[in-house]
Computed example of a mutant assay.
Amino acid sequence: MVGSRVLSGKVSNKLTLSWRDALMGYAFVAPQILGFLLLVLGPLVAVIIFSTQDRNLLSGAVTNVGLENYRFMLNDDPFFTKVLGNTVAFSAGLVPFNLALALVLALLLTQPVPGIVIFRTLFFAPVITSTVAWAVVWRFLFQGEAGINSFLALIGIDGPNWLREPHWAMVAVIFAQVIKNVGLNTLIFMAALQNIPKDYSDAASVDGANLLQRVRHITIPLLSPTIMLVLMLTLIGSLKVFDLIMLMTNGGPANATNVLVYYIYFRAFQVFQTGYASALALILFGAALVITIAQWVVRRRLVYNER
Rank of each mutant, 00 (worst) to 15 (best):
V2L: 06
G3N: 10
L7W: 11
L7Q: 12
S8C: 07
L15I: 12
W19N: 06
Q32W: 15
L34Q: 12
L37F: 14
V40T: 15
V47C: 05
V47G: 03
I48H: 08
I48Q: 09
F50A: 14
S51V: 09
S51I: 07
T52W: 02
D54A: 11
L58M: 15
V65D: 15
D77L: 00
P78L: 09
T81R: 04
V83K: 00
L84K: 01
T87Q: 09
S91M: 10
A92W: 01
G93C: 04
A100W: 07
L103F: 09
L108F: 09
Q111A: 06
P112W: 07
P114K: 12
F119W: 11
F123I: 12
W134Q: 05
V136E: 12
V136Y: 14
F142D: 00
Q143W: 01
N149E: 06
L152Y: 04
A153I: 02
I157V: 15
D158M: 00
N161A: 10
A169Y: 03
A169G: 08
M170F: 05
K180H: 10
V182K: 05
L184E: 13
N185Y: 06
N185T: 09
N195G: 15
P197N: 10
A203V: 09
A204M: 01
D207L: 01
A209R: 04
V215P: 00
R216C: 01
T226P: 01
L229Q: 07
V230K: 02
M232N: 15
T234P: 01
G237A: 07
K240Q: 15
K240H: 08
V241H: 07
I245R: 03
M248D: 02
A254C: 05
N255D: 13
A256V: 07
V261P: 02
Y265I: 00
Y265C: 03
F266K: 14
Q273G: 01
A277K: 06
S278M: 08
L280F: 11
A288S: 13
L289M: 13
V290M: 14
I291S: 11
T292R: 09
Q295D: 12
V297T: 14
R299E: 15
Y304F: 05
Y304I: 03
